[in-house]
């Protein structure tokens, strides 16, 4: 199988039924995308498939073929992504940091589609689970990155 991840081509040899998450982490070797629940609830595993946020933990490895995959490691290639990364640092959003990759992938997509997201937009878009409780600062970072 051939993957396009963050603009690079990877030759992948794995069980096509393996979840895309584990193909990215163990086979491609990019570990920024996280395992949290394996049942598409916590969203720590969020990547972009052709620019759209998708949970990767129940997607199959074979579904990664013929699409553009973007992980947190490639987020800085996106100007909005880069802006959000900086805003997350500026407001000191991450605590343990484990869920933040997924948080950033979702937040960036939100800002790309709504350049000035309201609180209601943020509430609706960010369904990610953060056990540390970084939500107030993630909200603040999104506002800051969008000049609000």
């Amino acid at each position: 199988m051939t993957y396009n991840v963050n603009g690079k081509t990877y030759s992948i040899d794995c069980d096509p039924d393996m979840p895309l998450l584990w193909a990215i982490r163990d086979v491609v070797g990019l570990t920024g995308t996280k395992y949290g629940c394996g049942i598409e609830i916590c969203r720590a595993c969020t990547v972009w498939i052709d620019g759209s946020p998708e949970k990767s933990c129940e997607k199959k490895a074979r579904e990664g073929v013929g699409v553009r995959i973007t992980t947190v490691e490639g987020l800085a290639n996106d100007p909005v992504g880069q802006k959000l990364q900086q805003a997350f640092i500026d407001v000191q959003a991450p605590q343990c940091g484990y869920c933040q990759s997924g948080m950033l992938m979702v937040a960036t997509k939100l800002v790309r589609s709504k350049p000035k997201p309201t609180d209601a937009d943020i509430d609706a878009a960010i369904g990610n689970i953060c056990a540390c409780g970084t939500y107030p600062r993630v909200r603040q970072a999104i506002k800051k990155a969008t000049g609000q």
Partner: peptide, 27 residues
């Protein structure tokens, strides 16, 4: 003070235990 560990936590480069990879490793 800005946290020293945060830049690595927004770009996927932070190494948590679950991210450790060593040569010849099995799972």
């Amino acid at each position: 003070a800005k946290r020293v560990d945060l830049p690595s936590k927004v770009d996927g480069s932070a190494t948590f235990g679950i991210d450790v990879r060593v040569p010849d490793m099995v799972y």
